[in-house]
């Protein structure tokens, strides 16, 4: 049975899922949701699919999943025979989960800033930008230590779903008026990610790196 993704092309969270589907060479059916200006994700019809009224949603063989991070775990667990994108080794697994939670938590401040600037969301933009900078600093400190150790990726020697989950809203930060001047290790990690085979850009992210 085909994989079906409820998707919006400008959504960084949907982009996480599209990226991994691409890295894993998976075919899928794309069901576009009119996020803006229609706000289709907040309709009764869509809430029957996801009561939280959020995208992405993924359907796969009778399973319906919400939350980009959960979807990444599902896809890697089921389809990545190499085990590299979701390593099961005890010294890596927990770290991947930790940074996945960070991507769905603290890092979403960068998404909030972008929703404000791009789609006119009514929210406290100064707080959003301040929190996004705090999250970027934590990721940059981590990637700086990784660089000193000779590593490139957030966890281990191969990109994982932690990198996939952290990439979109970091790469899209300028959409929310957040510059990356203070984060050299983070910039170099972004560039390495964009050089991965099968990397696919989206609107707001350069195809050239």
């Amino acid at each position: 049975m085909a994989i079906k993704l409820y998707d919006y092309s400008l959504s960084g969270s949907c982009y996480k899922v599209r990226l991994l589907l691409g890295f894993l060479d998976l075919e899928y059916e794309r069901h576009p949701i009119g996020f803006y200006p229609e706000r289709e994700h907040r309709t009764e019809t869509f809430r029957a699919i996801n009561p939280l009224g959020q995208i992405p949603v993924l359907e796969d063989d009778g399973i319906r999943l919400r939350d980009a991070q959960a979807i990444l775990c599902h896809l890697a667990n089921k389809y990545d025979m190499s085990g590299l994108w979701l390593p099961r080794a005890p010294e890596l697994y927990g770290l991947v989960m930790m940074w996945l939670m960070f991507a769905g938590g603290e890092l979403m401040a960068a998404s909030a800033a972008r929703l404000h600037d791009l789609l006119g969301y009514d929210l406290d933009i100064e707080t959003a930008r301040r929190n996004a900078h705090a999250a970027f600093r934590i990721l940059d400190d981590h990637l700086t230590r990784r660089e000193i150790e000779g590593g490139t990726w957030i966890v281990g020697d191969h990109p994982t779903i932690a990198d996939v989950a952290c990439f979109p809203y970091t790469a899209l930060s300028n959409d929310g008026g957040i510059g990356l001047e203070d984060y050299p290790a983070l910039r170099n990690w972004l560039r390495s990610f964009m050089h991965l085979p099968k990397f696919d850009a989206m609107s707001g992210i350069s195809e050239f790196a």
Partner: peptide
Amino acid sequence: VALDRQIKPGSSNPAIV
């Protein structure tokens, strides 16, 4: 304005001075 090692070959980077 930067550490030599962090300005990778084939890259352009922002800074404010």
